[in-house]
Simulated scan of single mutants.
Amino acid sequence: MASPSTGIAFPLTYDAAQAGPNYSASDFRLTAGVALAVPDGSAFGGIQGVRLGSPSPLATIDGTMVTVAPHMGWLCPWPGGSGCYTYALPEPQQVTVDSTTGSYKIAVVLEDKAAGHGNGEKVYVKKYPGYTPDSQIPGLVVARVDDGVASDVAPVVSQDATVRIATLEQLQSLKAADGVGAVLSDGSRYERSGGRWSLLDTGWVRVTPGGGWSFPASDDQPLAARKVGRLVELRGVIMYPGGWQATWGCCTVPAGMAPSSRVWMRGYRRNTGNFFLDPDGVVRALEAVGGTGDAFLHATWLAA
């Protein structure tokens, strides 16, 4: 029978007089470092990000000089269960980009000549071409610079396992354990479930009219949608213009609410008609009507 392997127990106290206990940087990354990070869904990995409360904006630009403000965060630059680093930049860090018209990524990178064993680590700010994949950067991309404008892009991590991030596109590329929550810059909330990001209860959100359609100015029920878990409800009134044609897009439901297959609905009010919602999130009218009017729509479905 194989002998049991020895685990790691990282102590929270240190006896200076006895010069111990002894532990390596690897021990710290696999215990304390991981414990302080929001889990990414792996046994010893964590989400890279900056700590909630970091300055905003985190990166500013003056000409070609980019300044990253003092802050702290988490780095998990190497896959394969190597653990997490906490890092701090106690002073402003500056890096110069090549021009005011290019595209660049600004990253906090980790250099460890001992391959992660705690001998010679160096944390600093470095620029990369804007086309460089994040996976090829040994650290955390904190900002983008496009045509002389700097924008923060780093996930902002709080200790309640909530990540704050700018866009849904950035969120979809972020790996996390089930149960981790996220908040986008528009206030919408997501939760990781079943290996994917799911939009939580959004409250009632106005849809986006299109093709000349609009909301009746005096109506108290403008068309809106709400998502709770995967269940989506659409209800309210929309005004259609004269001479509209069948299959024109009336409106678009908010991101994350589209169905996996076509949903049919019946419109009632001054005129009646059939409408359908496609997986691209666009509500379209089936029949053509010559005059102006409005319709009350109501439907429920499961989001894709």
Score class of each variant (00 low, 15 high):
Lys105Ala: 06
Thr31Ala: 09
Lys122Arg: 11
Leu36His: 12
Ala59His: 05
Lys126His: 13
Ala16Gln: 13
Asp15Phe: 13
Asn119Leu: 13
Ala32His: 12
Thr67Gly: 03
Lys122Gln: 11
Leu36Arg: 14
Lys105Arg: 15
Gln94Met: 13
Gly120Glu: 07
Ala16Lys: 15
Ala88Asp: 10
Thr86Pro: 11
Thr100Met: 09
Gly20Tyr: 07
His71Asn: 14
Ala115Thr: 11
Ile106Met: 08
Gly45Asn: 02
Ile47Arg: 00
Leu52Gln: 11
Thr60Cys: 05
Gly46Cys: 02
Ala88Tyr: 07
Thr86Leu: 14
Thr86Gly: 15
Ser82Arg: 12
Ser42Thr: 15
Val38Gln: 00
Tyr124Ile: 02
Leu36Met: 11
Val34His: 05
Gly45His: 02
Val109Trp: 14
Gly53Arg: 08
Val108Glu: 03
Thr60Phe: 07
Leu36Pro: 00
Lys113His: 10
Thr64Pro: 05
Gly80Cys: 04
Ala25Gln: 12
Ser24Thr: 15
Ile106Pro: 00
Asn119Gln: 14
Ser56His: 10
Leu89Ser: 13
Thr64Ala: 07
Phe44Asn: 11
Ala115Phe: 14
Ser54Glu: 01
Lys105Ile: 05
Gly81Leu: 09
Gly41Phe: 06
Gln93Arg: 12
Ala59Ile: 01
Ser24Tyr: 12
Gly118Cys: 09
Pro21Ala: 03
Glu121Val: 06
Gln94Trp: 06
Gly118Asp: 05
Val66Asn: 00
Asp27Ile: 06
Thr101Asp: 13
Asn119Glu: 13
Thr64Met: 09
Gly41Gln: 06
Ala107Ile: 08
His117Thr: 14
Asp98Gly: 02
Tyr104Lys: 09
Asn22Tyr: 15
Leu12Phe: 14
